[in-house]
Nucleic acid binder design. Structure first.
Length: 245
RNA sequence: GCUAUUUCGAU
């Protein structure tokens, strides 16, 4: 089963759902019983494909085989509902999950928080962050990045900075997603000096800038006519072996 | 040993 699951997962990740389902058929023919992971993988595949209908149908197939959905199943479904903007359904699903006695984890919360942020419901997103912590689930870097990215995008950088502090107090290390959000937002607000200071502090905070962060920073500097700074950053990246476009 | 979450569009 494990081997078949891996093959199915590869097809799913390559968005070859036909092949993935074919493989499920092959298993049946050879008398190999699929397990919960097999179905979760297929469900995640349909979700990646944005096919809510097929994903939901697959949950029924999961039941037909005598399995019960788990936190993976629910998280996949909740995430796809969020992505297709059916946030109400996503929350219904979340409640259903709890009724089933399945404990949501950080990943489950992250999908909901992220989609609340995207749909402009930051207040609700922050409330959910608090609820999550009350329920004893530790937020992770994804949780904070979703919120920080949102605050940075709407240029509420002070709010984002407050979140950064709580993140640090929880021993969570900001990553390139975090830094890029701040740097891009600071540049867009004309706060280039702060952007540069933050960029330069990355290494000492044990976060190696990646191509995305560097490219977008250099780009912002060039577009605002700050050629010297741009060259400076560009050279630093080159020194570190970061490949820029 | 197998499954789920973060960059809407910078380059």
């Amino acid at each position: 089963v494990f081997s078949y699951n891996m093959v199915i997962d590869c097809f799913c990740k390559a968005k070859m759902m036909g092949k993935a389902m074919e493989t499920l058929g092959v298993m049946a023919k050879r008398g190999i019983f699929p397990n919960l992971v097999t179905f979760n993988t297929l469900i995640a595949g349909y979700c990646k494909d944005r096919n809510v209908i097929k994903a939901r149908a697959m949950v029924l197939v999961l039941f037909d085989h005598g399995f019960k959905p788990d936190v993976f199943t629910f998280s996949s479904i909740i995430d796809i509902l969020c992505r297709v903007n059916q946030i109400t359904d996503a929350f219904d699903c979340f409640l259903e999950m709890v009724e089933w006695g399945i404990k949501p984890n950080a990943i489950t919360y992250n999908s909901l928080i992220r989609s609340l942020c995207i749909s402009g419901n930051v207040i609700k997103a922050m409330k959910l962050l608090r609820k999550m912590q009350v329920d004893g689930i530790r937020p992770d870097v994804y949780t904070f990045n979703a919120l920080i990215q949102n605050y940075c995008k709407v240029k509420k950088i002070d709010k984002a900075q407050r979140l950064l502090s709580s993140m640090l107090s929880l021993d969570l290390r900001p990553d390139n997603f975090t830094y890029a959000a701040f740097i891009n937002s600071l540049c867009e607000s004309g706060r280039f000096v702060e952007a540069k200071d933050l960029f330069n502090s990355m290494e000492e905070n044990r976060c190696r800038p990646d191509a995305y962060t560097c490219n977008s920073f250099v780009d912002a500097l060039v577009n605002s006519g700050r050629f010297e700074d741009a060259q400076d950053v560009w050279l630093k990246c080159k020194e570190k072996g970061i490949v820029l476009k």
